[in-house]
Write a protein that binds this DNA or RNA. Structure first.
Lengths: 142, 142
DNA sequence: ATGACTGCAAAATATTTGCATATTC
DNA sequence: GAATATGCAAATATTTTGCAGTCAT
């Protein structure tokens, strides 16, 4: 990731979102982490250097980012939403051993379909459940 | 759906789950609905004819069914888990207009892969976001 | 009577809302 | 200074946990 604060500001402005300090920090946090953070984890990271930030602002902001399609929601665990910086479509793996969510690149013929049996398709979310390669290695040592 | 109470009882027994009255009712409710219910909607349906049933039992039971792979969790909205009676793997569509979750049958070459870049795959969940055919029809009338 | 199942109440977790204050153009 | 954004506190929604009572074998 080479995207810096100035570029993130441009992205927000181009989508009609005022690039306030909090909003920039929230976007920077998610795109810089390389992970799939929840609203709560974004809050916990930011509150260290920005002690006055509130969870409400984090939630408001993330919701706005979703609407403008700056972020994509990952709803894999079912009890929390994670946020993915919207680069290109890809699948995910939820590791049943360590709980991590890992990017997986697979070819999928359905990724760019616009219509399926009369339904209009906007996007495809695919995720696998299984055991990640790291956990597989640990298991095979025993 | 032709599966009846007797067959459901067999399914539970064969998976090592004691087929109590509550458990049978819960499974019957989900498999008979043809929909994708949440724990809360299962509870609200059952409490009408079984006023003493508790949400705790519904949650306990559904969790046990997941572990034994009698049901599959649908985690599409991100703030609630829906339950699908596990017949054969299929994709879903979340309609952005009406909010319904609809079964979609698509061919997917990744549905039966057991391994991807070192990760061990147990199952694939795929869902589309878009507008369902019913809502598309309504839209085109204007 | 032993172990598993059920259900109430309370806790924990995740998210939303109302409203007053603060910030920005 | 009008409009928008922020943040506190309280409310809501979903799920989990502790524990006591119940049921079936």
């Amino acid at each position: 990731m080479i995207t810096n604060s100035v570029e993130l500001k441009k992205i927000l402005s181009s989508k009609g979102i005022k690039p306030t300090y909090q909003r920039l920090k929230i976007l920077e946090c998610i795109q810089g982490s390389g992970k799939h953070l929840t609203a709560d984890s974004v809050y916990r990271v930011l509150v260290k250097e920005l002690p006055t930030i509130s969870k409400t602002t984090v939630y408001n902001t993330l919701k706005a980012f979703l609407k403008k399609e700056i972020l994509v929601p990952l709803t894999i665990t079912g009890t929390e939403v994670r946020f993915d910086y919207n680069t290109h479509p890809h699948h995910h793996l939820l590791c049943e051993k360590c709980g991590r969510i890992i990017d997986v690149n697979v070819l999928c013929p359905n990724l760019h379909r616009k219509e399926i049996s009369g339904h209009c398709i906007h996007e495809l979310h695919g995720y696998f459940r299984g055991v990640c390669s790291d956990c597989m290695k640990k298991l095979s040592k025993h």
